[in-house]
Every structure is written in structure tokens, then in C-alpha cells.
């Protein structure tokens, strides 16, 4: 999870990623950040994130992103 926060900070710094639960709803991450983030996550964690998974519920908090990553890793 620490690596995920590092990636997020590289993409958009100055956000309290540990506590924020509304990263998408409150526009901390916009579509440009999401495009970078998806590319980085896919490389780092060896997963493919289908576009259908790009929904606020999966990206609103670090926890939900981590859940998505582990789920996609398990699915192989």
C-alpha cells in the first residue's frame, strides 16, 4: 500500500491520501491523473485495469484502489 501512495504522490502531490475518501468525488484526481495512474498501476503491479473498473468507488480512496489491485491480481 505504501508503494501505491508513493505512486499517487508522484502523480498529484499535496493530497492527504491516507485519510481522503473522496479523491474522485472532490476532484483531487481528475481524468488526466487517472490516465497516468492506471498506466503506472498496470506497470507496477502487473495487472490490467479494464475501463469498466474506472469508477469513483474504485478510486475514491487508497483502500479502494488497493482492493481493486489485489482483486485484479488474484483474478490473474
Amino acid at each position: 500500500m505504501d508503494r501505491l501512495i508513493e505512486i499517487l504522490e508522484e502523480i498529484e502531490d499535496g493530497v492527504d491520501y491516507k485519510n481522503c475518501k473522496t479523491l474522485i468525488d472532490d476532484h483531487y484526481l481528475d481524468s488526466l491523473s487517472i490516465i497516468s495512474l492506471v498506466a503506472e498501476l498496470e506497470d507496477e503491479f502487473d495487472i490490467t485495469i479494464p475501463t469498466v473498473e474506472i469508477i469513483p468507488e474504485n478510486f475514491n480512496s487508497v483502500e479502494s484502489m488497493w482492493k481493486l489491485i489485489t482483486r485484479l491480481q488474484e483474478e490473474g
Binding site: 481524468s31 487517472i34 490516465i35 492506471v38 498506466a39 475501463t51 469498466v52 474506472i54
Partner: peptide
Amino acid sequence: RDYVFYPLSL
């Protein structure tokens, strides 16, 4: 957004 923008940009 869901059927053109993200599928294309990703």
C-alpha cells in the same frame, strides 16, 4: 466518458 474517452486514452 465511459465508452469513448477512457477506452481510447487507456
